[in-house]
């Protein structure tokens, strides 16, 4: 390419009147020829375009199989989230049922056997008068024992009151004498 042709092509290039073929001609020229100092910038620009075109994505594992695989997880994700949500609901329901059962068990079930007696408390005594008598006797003994304790405490209080009254009387008598 002579200098006249080069000048003509560059003029067309800067005015955006060059064809793709002419631009390719310029690119090849600048890549393969030493250029005068005045055209160094233009040569650098064309070399830049050529270098940038070398940038590629080939080292990235990107193929149809990868795309296909990448495109699928959306559907799988929906199923997974559906299963996950169902399991969450099921876990909530299970916890609720367990709570209801526990409360029901604690409130309405008879208490566990006592420590002292391995025997169970009789559930009902209507059918057996002997057991009914024993249970009544036990209940009355318990009440009696309670009364006994209360009487003892009341006696102590009474003693205290009597002592208090006696002291008050002595105080009254001594004040009269004075």
């Amino acid at each position: 390419m002579d200098s006249k042709r080069l000048e003509e092509l560059l003029q067309k290039y800067w005015n955006c009147e060059s064809s793709l073929e002419e631009e390719e001609e310029l690119r090849i020229y600048f890549q393969t020829h030493e250029v005068p100092e005045a055209l160094k910038d233009t040569a650098d620009l064309f070399r830049y375009f050529g270098d940038f075109k070398e940038k590629n994505i080939d080292h990235v594992p990107l193929d149809a199989a990868a795309i296909n695989k990448a495109a699928k997880p959306k559907a799988a994700g929906k199923v997974r989230s559906l299963v996950y949500n169902t399991m969450r609901i099921a876990a909530g329901v299970a916890a609720l049922v367990a709570a209801i059962w526990f409360v029901h068990h604690e409130l309405y079930e008879p208490p566990a056997p006592t420590v002292a007696g391995t025997e169970k408390e009789p559930e009902d005594t209507f059918d057996d008068p002997k057991i009914a008598f024993e249970e009544t006797k036990k209940a009355l003994m318990m009440i009696s024992k309670g009364f006994g304790k209360a009487e003892k405490q009341a006696r102590n209080i009474n003693l205290f009151n009597e002592a208090k009254e006696e002291i008050q009387e002595q105080d009254a008598q001594s004040s009269k004498k004075l």
Binding site: K55, N56, I57, V60, L62
Partner: peptide
């Protein structure tokens, strides 16, 4: 798929980061 490098360079022109350009492609 053959146009992947062109797409990559075009995205790179916008984004300036190779990693982001790859993500876009």
């Amino acid at each position: 798929l053959p146009s992947k490098n062109k797409l990559f360079r075009f995205a790179l022109r916008f984004l300036g980061s190779e990693e982001e350009a790859k993500d876009v492609v």
